[in-house]
Write a protein that binds this DNA or RNA. Structure first.
Length: 549
DNA sequence: GTACTGGGCCAC
DNA sequence: AAACGTGGCCCAGTAC
């Protein structure tokens, strides 16, 4: 049974599947959720607008429908493109998510432009969405995607609520060891200054400014070092005594500016790092984060993520996820078999298709990214001979993109159409006044969009697998129990594309490991049914995140 | 002061 | 080895 949640004035309007609507206060809403049967599906406009307050009141929601996220999928999906929802003009359900800051300003207060009584009525939208799914050629497919996306929204809110355990003292120790003591505002950390002094001395350029690429290039030139750019991998090729300390300066300088003391003060509070996850924030369906750079935590500082006393971190990542997704969605049994024993790349070598593991890896990555040069590009024909179905699938996706067509993931997330510039360029290339240069440019843009669609189907389907994995894991962790929710129970605290971190009481850790693996099997079945595609995990039970991998 | 862009680098 | 996908963030430089 579902209950649609809407706002009316300062109150909450609850419209159940059967029975009459009810108006409750904000606090009454939390009580109503607590009192409802646990399998109630709460249908609301946006999870980030309702769930944080419920969590703060100690109320957990098992299932929801996030109408905004679902709307975005249904509007674009080829599986529902005939629906009333998809053919209507863009409306309030197409707006961007409510920013967290705005939510803080006005918790249950309603903005004029998102007034729910009118055209943004969640009851009407919910009906349109159900109709769109029901009329779809494959309702089960899109249904699973919507369920996974909404579960993801709940998980994102819960992870932000609990936060990832973070020890500022350990972080500070790491910074101090690498950079020296925390400097005064506007000063360079001691070790950075020492490295810079050395670079300037070795180049004999006393005013070299390392922090501006353009200035650095000029400074290097004055010291007799001719570089074409200041990229680390370019500088590495140059033999000069100043290059070593310069590269070290760049590395440490990045750490200081991106994840240094000011990051710590801004993003870690009360021993927790609480990133703002943006579910479906990437076109492919991957998550993004806003603020704190949670998806780019450098390995250098991961040991500051320390389990609480008496707790453990279970860190699990899906090994070679994207190539396995490619094999499974293409139904390429030979490639699936190559991955069955554990290491897919080793399996490809064992099958005789490619000579070394390293070559197998770059060839496969090249197939998914659209490599044309280097080892990746060179090995493609070999890979295509050994695994024709898998390679044909990504090649077809690339050809579709080059023609400006839409491609779709396993569960039904469709790619956007290329923009106006793209179309104009293509049209010009075939027009009356076409020049060779225009044709080249058009071809280059077309190929570029082909690489996007090629990657979209794999990355997007991998994102679906990861959502199903997490959704299943969340249910399994709930079933594990252990006491008061979050206080005594294992829960997700971090997600990174193909990797999860569970914070768990130490005595539950072994069972969490089993559930994480079982959830991966669930995800494989949800996406690929009976096809025996393996999605092995690397799992580590550790005291700090730095010990994993 | 704010808004935007490009260079660079971190993650997957 | 360095060109091949998705991002975010920081910084410097520039335009307004």
């Amino acid at each position: 049974m579902y209950i649609v949640v809407g706002a009316t004035g300062g109150s909450v309007l609850l419209t159940p599947e059967s029975g009459s609507p009810e108006v409750v206060s904000a606090t009454g809403f939390a009580a109503a959720v607590r009192a409802a049967p646990p399998d109630t599906r709460w249908v609301w406009d946006e999870t980030g607008r309702w769930y944080p307050d419920l969590l703060a009141s100690g109320v957990r929601v098992e299932r929801c429908v996030d109408l905004r996220l679902s709307h975005a999928i249904l509007r674009n999906s080829v599986l529902t493109n005939d629906s009333e929802l998809a053919t209507a003009a863009p409306g309030p359900w197409d707006r961007a998510r409510v920013e967290k800051r705005e939510q803080d300003d006005a918790l249950f207060a309603i903005d004029e432009d998102v007034e729910l009584a009118g055209e943004a009525d969640p009851v009407a939208e919910w009906e349109l969405q159900q109709a769109a799914v029901a009329a779809s050629a494959e309702p089960g497919r899109i249904q699973r995607l919507l369920a996974a996306e909404s579960a993801g929204a709940l998980i994102a809110a819960e992870m932000q609520f609990t936060g990832m355990p973070w020890r500022p003292d350990v972080h500070d120790d790491i910074l101090t060891a690498l950079l020296g003591r925390r400097p005064k505002q506007g000063e360079r950390p001691a070790k950075l200054q020492a490295l810079l002094d050395e670079v300037q001395r070795l180049l004999d350029v006393s005013d070299l400014n390392p922090d501006s690429p353009a200035e650095l290039l000029k400074g290097l030139a004055r010291g007799g070092v001719l570089a074409t750019s200041t990229r680390s991998w370019e500088l590495k090729k140059i033999k000069h005594p100043a290059i070593g300390p310069l590269l070290e300066y760049k590395k440490l300088s990045r750490l200081a500016s991106a994840n240094g003391w000011s990051w710590l003060e801004t993003w870690v509070h009360d021993g927790r790092f609480r990133p703002d996850y943006v579910v479906g924030g990437v076109v492919t369906g991957r998550w993004a984060t806003s603020g704190g750079g949670a998806l780019q935590l450098p390995k250098q500082i991961r040991s500051a993520v320390v389990a609480d006393e008496g707790w453990k971190l279970v860190v699990a990542d899906a090994a070679q996820l994207e190539p396995r997704i490619l094999a499974a969605m293409a139904g390429d049994r030979d490639m699936v078999t190559a991955g069955a024993a554990g290491d897919l790349y080793a399996g490809i070598v064992a099958s005789g298709a490619i000579d070394t593991r390293e070559h197998a890896k770059v060839a496969l990555l090249g197939a998914m990214y659209g490599a044309t040069q280097g080892d990746g590009g060179r090995l493609m024909p070999q890979l295509a001979r050994a695994y024709p179905k898998a390679i044909a699938m990504v090649e077809d996706a690339a050809r579709a993109g080059e023609k400006g067509e839409i491609v779709t993931t396993r569960l039904g997330r469709s790619s956007p159409l290329p923009g106006d510039t793209w179309r104009t360029l293509q049209d010009e290339a075939y027009g009356e006044v076409a020049t060779p240069a225009a044709a080249d440019r058009a071809r280059s843009y077309a190929r570029s969009w082909g690489r996007f669609t090629r990657n979209f189907i794999v990355q997007g389907t991998a994102a679906e697998w990861a959502l199903c994995w997490m959704a299943s894991l969340r249910n399994r962790l709930t079933d594990l129990g252990g006491g008061e929710w979050f206080v005594d129970t294992a829960h997700l605290v971090f997600f990174l594309h193909d990797e999860v971190v569970v914070h768990t009481p130490a005595h539950l850790a072994e069972r969490v490991v089993e559930e994480v693996r079982a959830a991966a099997t669930d995800a494989g079945r949800l996406l690929f049914g009976a096809l025996p595609a393996e999605f092995p995990l690397t799992v580590a039970t550790v005291d700090n995140y730095g010990q994993a991998k």
